[in-house]
Design a protein around this nucleic acid. Sequence first.
DNA 1: GGTAGACACTTGCAAAACGCAAGTCACTGG
DNA 2: CCAGTGACTTGCGTTTTGCAAGTGTCTACC
Lengths: 133, 133
Amino acid sequence: MSTRKTFLRSPCAVANSLDVVGDKWSLLVVRDLLHGKHTYGELAASPEGIPTNILADRLKRLESAGIIVRTPYHERPIRYSYTLTQKGKDLGGVLLAFVRWGKQHIPGTVALSASQASDGAMASAKNSRHTPG
Amino acid sequence: MSTRKTFLRSPCAVANSLDVVGDKWSLLVVRDLLHGKHTYGELAASPEGIPTNILADRLKRLESAGIIVRTPYHERPIRYSYTLTQKGKDLGGVLLAFVRWGKQHIPGTVALSASQASDGAMASAKNSRHTPG
DNA sequence: GGTAGACACTTGCAAAACGCAAGTCACTGG
DNA sequence: CCAGTGACTTGCGTTTTGCAAGTGTCTACC
């Protein structure tokens, strides 16, 4: 399902990355996945309150972008588990950059995710509160 | 300008960063500004072709978010020059993370910005004026 | 075996954002 | 006076978002 399906609107890596994950929700889903969540219900329960139709749509998009994979973990009422591919895990660097910027420039924010993903610089985000999100 | 003017939908730095620059165009504007562009016309001429109403809106949003500042460079037909604040320049780290990810995972993309600044040097991207992206 | 949940989604709209084209305003140059 | 440029603004149709409610399949309890 991927034989030259992409016309790039420009060769810029930033522009094309944003075409894939440049919306308000995709990276939050990746963040939660990186955090160890892996079911639809866990993802839907994040404190930002993603609408369920958006979540379903983002999961489809992220899957077809090769960022996550969907594997059944229960058969008869079919239930899927979502996990990051390497491509998805590599977004940890982007998440970390956002965490750093947000912590530095938006008062009241803390690092709740991505800290141990690709850089140990802020692995101390665990001693704080740990309500999911 | 930082006395709890906004209700954060969650304390997560990623979520709040995305509320500010989590759309398809804002970071491209920042990229161009980092690249040395600074007038409306230069920004509108980027290869991704941002619609002018979107550009005008993003410039307002980025200004009220403290990411850019607008200073007049011509008086009688008033013309403004847009430049990044430190907060805006610090988004270079995010851009760089996107460049890395895009180059690694999206075939056909190249780093047209932020790449030659390598790792930590983004913050010093002032007026180097490389080839426009 | 009937009712009550939970989980993983879908579906139906209304509201907002986006994107294209065209228009405006203040000048400059001929 | 008329064409043109730079910096926006306005109109309007399309797309995406967001809220609520609904569906289907099971498990739990009585």
